[in-house]
Design a protein around this nucleic acid. Structure first.
Lengths: 236, 236
DNA sequence: AAGTGGTCTAGACCACTGA
DNA sequence: CAGTGGTCTAGACCACTTG
């Protein structure tokens, strides 16, 4: 039961329990002291205790079981998060091109489109001082007659384009990470040899109803670097 | 202001505000009604209102600015999470081997080890009916004289091994995703041709002090599949 | 029946921001 | 200065679990 000067009581409760869990004095599956017990121990009310337990629950340290008590959770060390460096990641845009094409078989499949559909395609080549580091293709369903948005043609970042098609919060994203070797056409664009390995990031943007409102591929040259992700409980 | 029968008041508040944000009636950067305003509107107390706002804040929809009010946040659509399917992912273990080796230059670098250090190495080949899908190598610092743990030799999943070296919550993980083509030695192990592309997952386990307590590489054949990640605000 | 967490009320005092 | 969020008190009633 430590106490930093002026530290809120609920913070003290959080730190204390957190420390006990991390040091394994409270083990996964074990019950932690009840709200009433903690209220008494810290000379405070249930509301304040709950304030602290709420945080630990949000962070995945504990979970509550109504009628029984709070229990230490089983840690999940295989859930990772990463921040995807949208553009400007691997360099500057060296070439860009936007046009409207008919849906290819790939696009019909990936974007669940009719084969008569049209799609706005935005291609970009990204490079650093020495080489082409990435090749990026974005596809956005194109409704005939609907004027293009500045943002689309001007290639702001993908989520921003999509946000204007729906609303800032009204969509979700899926990413798939794959790998392949570079073939003919791509080798020319990326200025490298056929057979070199590339990472491919596929992105799907869906609206509230699951309708695909954006699809993209990004080829990243293996020499550029790695994608980094993290998981864990210590940095919270 | 909707109301489901028996739904807690704070839930109603959450749903209502959430809907307004997703529909873009409350826009990023805009202030939402104050706690007092909401208390009056829902005929409840500040405590109940705060209960709801807390949730929306945790989910990233809003943030509070003491003395000013609550504001709608800028959505982050480039933060992804994925669950890493530990083993049994791409098939069954076809071959395994554990031994103790001297730290190679790579290990000294990656694990921040002294060149005289010893390391427990666990290699595994994973395959499905048709082919080798992955090759997995785990490294764990080996202290001379310390007996090996059952778990290590028996190759339970990586986080579990590491958890026994410290404590279930007392470490964090970094993953890096890279790509390469298969070279000689690896081609033999993975039963494929030289030059085929592979995804490489590097994993680093650190304890509270940042000391590396586990390192691993997993080569995944491109034919196996993709790594999938998600982001967004709709599924919460 | 006693204990647990879930929800809620009706206040209080504080530090901070803005007009 | 009035308004905002941050913290906290001291209760209440409920549904649930356990002995």
């Amino acid at each position: 039961m430590s106490k930093a000067a002026g530290e809120p009581v609920y913070q003290t409760i959080i730190s204390d329990l957190r420390r006990q869990i991390i040091r394994n004095h409270l083990k996964p599956g074990e019950m932690i002291p009840s709200e009433n017990e903690l209220s008494a121990r810290y000379q405070t009310t249930r509301a304040t205790v709950r304030r602290g337990l709420q945080v630990l629950e949000n962070q995945g340290f504990i979970h509550s079981w109504p009628g029984k008590g709070y229990y230490v959770s089983q840690p999940r060390h295989n859930i990772f998060t990463f921040e995807f460096p949208e553009d400007e990641w691997s360099g500057t845009v060296a070439y860009k091109n936007a046009d409207i094409i008919h849906a290819t078989p790939e696009l019909c499949r990936e974007m669940e489109l009719d084969s008569s559909a049209c799609v706005l395609r935005i291609c970009r080549v990204i490079r650093n001082e020495k080489r082409v580091t990435a090749y990026d293709i974005k596809y956005i369903p194109y409704e005939k007659g609907v004027p293009l948005l500045e943002a689309e043609i001007d290639y702001s970042v993908f989520p921003e384009i999509v946000a204007q098609k729906s609303a800032p919060f009204a969509f979700y994203t899926r990413m798939e990470i794959g790998v392949d070797t570079i073939s003919g056409e791509l080798a020319e664009i990326m200025e490298c040899k056929i057979g070199e390995p590339v990472m491919i990031l596929y992105r799907y943007f869906m609206d509230e109803n699951g309708k695909i409102i954006g699809y993209g591929k990004k080829y990243i040259h293996s020499a550029y670097g790695r994608l980094k992700a993290e998981s864990g409980y210590l940095n919270r």
